[in-house]
Simulated assay, not measured.
Amino acid sequence: MSTKSTNNTLLILVILLCLVVTALGYYTYGFHSEVQAREAQLAEEKERVVQQLEEELSNYNALLEEKNALKTNLQQAQTRLKQLKKTLTSNKITRTTVQKLQIEIRRLRREREFFSTQNDSLQLETKRLATLQEETQKALELVTKSQDSIQKSNKELSERLMQGARLTISNLAARGVIQRNSGKFANTSRANRAEMIQVCFTINENKLTQEGNKTFYVQVSYKNKVIGVQRYEDWPDGTTIIYNTKTTIPYNQEAYTICELVLPIQKMNGGDYTINVYHDQELLISTELGLK
Rank of each mutant, 00 (worst) to 15 (best):
V49G: 00
Q76D: 07
K85Y: 05
T97P: 03
M196P: 10
M268F: 10
A194Y: 00
R106M: 05
L13H: 05
S33Q: 15
N213K: 14
N252W: 00
R193N: 01
K225P: 01
A191C: 01
L10A: 13
D234S: 10
E65L: 11
A37S: 14
S149K: 15
T188I: 05
I93C: 07
L108V: 03
I242V: 15
I285T: 15
Q163L: 11
T96Y: 04
Q76C: 02
L291K: 04
I103V: 10
L129W: 04
V49C: 02
Y29P: 07
L289Q: 01
Q102R: 08
D120R: 06
N206L: 09
I12K: 06
Q123T: 01
T248P: 15
E135N: 15
K85N: 06
I197T: 04
C200F: 06
K82D: 00
P250Q: 08
Q163V: 03
G30F: 11
G164K: 09
L42T: 07
I258A: 13
L172C: 04
E260H: 11
V21G: 00
Y232L: 12
L10V: 13
A174N: 07
L74G: 02
E39W: 07
S116V: 09
I178C: 01
A62S: 14
A191T: 04
V262S: 06
P250K: 05
S121P: 00
A173G: 05
K127V: 07
E34L: 06
G183I: 08
N192A: 12
